[in-house]
Design a protein around this nucleic acid. Structure first.
Lengths: 157, 157
DNA sequence: TTTAATAATGGTAACCATTTTCATTAAGCC
DNA sequence: GGCTTAATGAAAATGGTTACCATTATTAAA
């Protein structure tokens, strides 16, 4: 297999193998879907997209794979408060832009924003350091999200 | 019973009536529990605490009441990522301290912190204004939360 | 290549917090 | 007290996610 630089079989190949996981058809299909569709897909969304091409990849595998991916830090598991988790690929090899989310509570539209990101990230980093020390927490993650009504939905009613 | 000035029947009486809601035993019991127990209670937690005194207040009513309370802004509905919602009284008449949360992903312990709150709130306000204008969102809410391992849990294993 | 060890899979049933349904009860107003 | 209608509770339904388990695929060893 090629050297470590992510050419030829997807940059994730190495990551999987390095952690003792096997790179299977199903997993590859899921990663493929995630990387080709910019968005926040639910497990079922992914299932729907994978199924036509690979009809024998079950929903269970989708969930299991997303779990693995998220524990490897390759995928972010997002919660927009509508009762189903969404998943998005973490920064790839070339580092997709870090962003936060703005969620419409009516139509569930999600806007990725990067405005203020620098300030937010800086404050988060600072806060993490402070809180971690004060409360003896080993902070691994954070959520910052805004909820409201989008253009269209705030006009209704 | 006394006149309208919030003496003797709880400060929430007026708020309820003013919005066309009826003040019932169940609702009062729930508010009572929420205001007396500092914490983040799940619907079932509340049910458990209400039940001994008012055995005929059902879980359904708990859920429905929490919904009303949260739509009135009297209660915050929180999501710590463990599959069940938590509720806490919003600032009462004397204004409890605004705080954010630090959640242990292992034992689900939650720390309310107020450190950095001022900076956070200021940044949030700014961001809300900026994002609202740019994306035409009417922002009504935000979440800022940290996840990690608490003192005890990071020591295990 | 054959084989053995074990990781991964898919279908189904289970899980469990939350909602819905609907007939009954109780609040608030006269 | 009587009336209108919101509120209620019990049970059933819902729906995303997980557990179970027998089967299959992958890898390393022989």
């Amino acid at each position: 297999m090629s050297r470590g630089n992510c050419q030829g079989q997807g940059w994730w190949h190495g990551k999987f193998r390095g952690c003792g996981y096997r790179l299977t058809i199903g997993r590859e299909a899921i990663l493929d879907i995630l990387s080709r569709s910019e968005g926040h897909l639910s497990a079922e969304d992914i299932y729907m997209k994978v199924h036509p091409k690979y009809p024998n990849v079950g929903l269970t595998t989708i969930y299991r794979t997303l779990d693995v991916l998220s524990s490897l830090g390759m995928v972010y598991k997002l919660d927009f408060g509508d009762g189903r988790a969404r998943y998005e690929l973490a920064e790839g090899p070339k580092g997709a832009h870090h962003h936060h989310h703005l969620v419409c509570t009516d139509c569930n539209k999600v806007v990725d924003y990067t405005d203020f990101i620098d300030e937010e990230v800086e404050l988060l980093r600072e806060t993490e350091k402070g809180l971690g020390a004060k409360y003896n927490f080993k902070i691994t993650n954070h959520v910052i999200q805004f909820y409201g009504l989008c253009d269209k939905c705030s006009g209704k009613k």
